[in-house]
């Protein structure tokens, strides 16, 4: 029984890889081949689909736009969440528990509920179709998550560290930047990973808050799918390329992913 246990994860990973394989294989096929015949491996191997994406600015700008607002969002979420998580992990104050729960309820808010009001809000303050608008909108669900994860990591750091630093004459900001942040670097990495992840995969808000200048790749894909009909190869290539940033990020945090949630407090 024990000897066969490697089979379970192997079969599961095969199941995970099948649709990805199909997407990648389709991205190297011509439209004729996709619609005309059923082939497991591309017969007329072509790079045409990728060439189109890398030369047409509406396509490659989509990736750049997405990466810009995702990075902005990650920086904003972590920067705002750090002091708040510190307060939650170290102090008791009036309404702290209610505040923490209220923050978490925003993680439960359906994006569909907020799409229209967000559109009106960000239009009203003149941020519509900017990267900042999407980045700020995504903080709605990313800040609660970042606070939650960071609070868990910070609670694991003994309080003596803070007290010793204050005795040594460190001011709060100096202690926080010079000693505390390096101590919880792993936690910041995990929080940043999850912020990146949830901002990168979200489509509805990103699509609602942009028109041209900050249009994310996901929106370019859905609009192409509805207008140009059956260019499946091109869509597959665009989809395959969206997997790459995620895969790179996972590789860097592979030793911390599993810990991210486990250390948090519900």
């Amino acid at each position: 029984m024990k000897r066969l246990s490697w089979l379970v994860p192997t079969i599961y990973i095969l199941f995970l890889m099948l649709p990805i394989y199909w997407l990648v294989s389709m991205s190297f096929k011509t439209t004729n081949e996709i619609l005309g015949s059923f082939t497991l491996v591309p017969q007329e191997f072509t790079l045409e689909n990728y060439k189109k994406i890398f030369t047409d600015s509406t396509w490659y700008m989509g990736y750049i736009n997405s990466l810009i607002y995702v990075s902005l969002n990650t920086v904003i979420s972590v920067a705002f969440a750090l002091p708040a998580a510190y307060a939650f992990s170290r102090y008791r104050f009036l309404g702290d528990k209610h505040l923490f729960f209220w923050l978490l309820t925003n993680r439960m808010a359906p994006a569909a509920v907020f799409a229209l009001p967000f559109f009106q809000l960000y239009s009203a303050i003149g941020l519509f179709d900017t990267h900042l608008a999407v980045a700020l909108a995504h903080t709605l669900f990313n800040i609660p998550l970042a606070v939650w994860i960071l609070e868990g990591f910070m609670s694991g750091v003994p309080k003596q560290l803070d007290e010793t630093a204050y005795v040594d004459g460190y001011s709060f900001p100096k202690f926080f930047m010079k000693i505390f942040i390096p101590t919880i670097a792993a936690g910041i990495g995990v929080a940043a990973f999850f912020c990146f992840m949830f901002s990168w995969v979200e489509l509805l808000l990103g699509k609602t808050l942009t028109a041209v200048a900050a249009k994310p790749i996901a929106a370019t894909m859905t609009r192409t799918a509805s207008t140009s009909g059956y260019e499946l190869g091109l869509l597959a290539a665009a989809g395959a390329l969206t997997i790459i940033p995620g895969a790179i990020v996972i590789y860097f945090v592979r030793n911390y992913i599993a810990k991210g949630f486990a250390l948090g407090r519900v």
Binding site: V201, E202, A218, G239, T242, I243, I250, R254, I257
Partner: peptide, 12 residues
């Protein structure tokens, strides 16, 4: 490998 599906945009 297992984390890969988690980082693929939802429309993809």
């Amino acid at each position: 490998l297992m984390a890969m599906p988690l980082l693929i945009p939802w429309n993809v």
